[in-house]
Amino acid sequence: MMRSILIIGLMLFLQPVSAQDETALVENLKAKLAKVNDYKATGKMKIDVSFINAPASNINVFYKRPNKFRLKKANGISILPKGGVSININSLFVNDNYKAVSAGEKAVNGVSTKAVMLIPMEENSEVVLMTLYIDEKNLLLLKTSITTRESGSYEMDMSYGKFSNWGLPDKVVFSFNTKDYKLPKGLTLEYEKGGKKKEAKIQNKKGSVEISYSNYIINKGVDEKEFASDKL
């Protein structure tokens, strides 16, 4: 009994210290990312969604602090999951009003990370809960899972290369849930091959968008017009 009381007392005593550690870690990461005021990047985007058949395409990406982000395909159509602004990790920390809670340690792609849960304190925040997996040694965000009010839950996996000093990833894999897609046959009038039909698709499958960055031009300024939306 005495031992249990002692352990609970110790946990309560240590909790604020731990929260302070997590907050400091997040603040350090934030400070690292804040070195980037803007960037232009080029890369390749691959979409893996059951009902989308699209080729990998060359893209241009533009970012400006605090949360202006645009992904464009030259003379083409770009498809991004809703909440796609979060494909850019620099936009994750726009809001300062959050509480950081430790969620233990976890290995991400063989690298030991510190898991930190961020709970936004604002009542109307779109993000409900965000878990960051931070490589403490290199101060890099390796993975994040985000639960939002409107756009569901999604995950981002990052891998780093020559731009790790800026906290900018070489590759981002954005995973999310998708709903089923169906149009009436009378509208599409498709050719019928015959033979056995495939099994009906399961609702709410997983989809992913992979962006591999080949180059970043950092803090050289980005024209505002790059963020203007195109007509459909």
Binding site: S57, K73, G76, P184
Partner: peptide, 20 residues
Amino acid sequence: GVSDLIVFKTEMFVVLESDD
């Protein structure tokens, strides 16, 4: 003008690049 083509099918849609 020209751009990528989206072909809507019953259970999926296909995106074809403009030069293809």
